[in-house]
Simulated scan of single mutants.
Amino acid sequence: MKVSSTLILAGALLISGCASVEMASQADSAKAKQFSPPSKGNAGVYVYRDSFIGKALKKDVWIDGHCVGESAPDVFFYTEVEGGKTHKVDTQSEFSPNTLELMFEAGKNYFIRQFIKMGVFVGGAGLEQIPEEQGKQAVAKLEMAKPGKCSAPR
Rank of each mutant, 00 (worst) to 15 (best):
I15P: 01
G17D: 03
A140R: 08
G69A: 08
K40L: 11
I63S: 01
G84P: 10
G65C: 11
V61Y: 01
L57V: 14
Q114V: 08
V122Q: 13
A140K: 13
L142D: 06
V75S: 02
V47C: 04
K55E: 15
F95M: 12
K31I: 08
G135H: 04
R113L: 10
Q137Y: 00
K85S: 06
E70F: 09
D28N: 04
K40V: 09
G126Q: 01
S151E: 10
F35R: 00
P131H: 11
E94C: 01
P37T: 08
G44Y: 05
F115G: 14
L9Q: 13
G41V: 02
S25P: 00
Y48C: 01
R113Y: 13
V122H: 11
E143K: 15
Q129G: 10
G123W: 02
Y48T: 00
L14C: 15
V75T: 10
V45M: 07
F104W: 10
I15M: 09
G84I: 10
K146Q: 12
K141R: 10
A24Q: 09
W62F: 13
V89Y: 03
F104M: 13
L9K: 14
H66G: 07
S20C: 11
G54W: 01
S39G: 07
A32L: 05
S96C: 12
P147W: 03
W62I: 09
F111W: 03
V81Q: 02
C18E: 15
F35I: 04
G41T: 00
R154Q: 11
A145T: 03
V120S: 12
A43H: 07
F104V: 05
K141C: 03
R113M: 11
I63C: 04
G124L: 05
M23W: 10
K31F: 12
A30C: 11
P97Q: 03
G148P: 05
A30Y: 06
L7N: 09
E143I: 13
A140W: 05
A72Y: 06
E128K: 12
Y78G: 04
C18W: 15
R113F: 13
Y78I: 03
Y46E: 07
S25D: 07
V3K: 15
C67T: 02
F35E: 01
E143N: 13
K85M: 08
G69D: 03
D28P: 00
R113A: 14
A30R: 09
S29K: 00
K117Y: 12
G124Q: 04
S36L: 14
I130D: 01
V47Y: 02
L57E: 11
D60M: 00
S39K: 14
A152S: 15
F115L: 09
P73N: 04
Y48P: 05
L127N: 06
K2P: 07
P97H: 01
T6D: 14
Q137E: 15
S39T: 10
A27G: 05
A10R: 14
V81C: 01
S16E: 06
A72D: 07
Y110V: 07
E80Q: 14
N42L: 13
K40M: 09
R113T: 09
I53A: 12
A138V: 12
S36F: 02
F52K: 07
P147K: 10
V61M: 00
M23C: 06
H87R: 05
L9P: 02
D60A: 03
G11H: 07
A19Y: 06
K117P: 01
F52C: 06
V21T: 09
A24G: 02
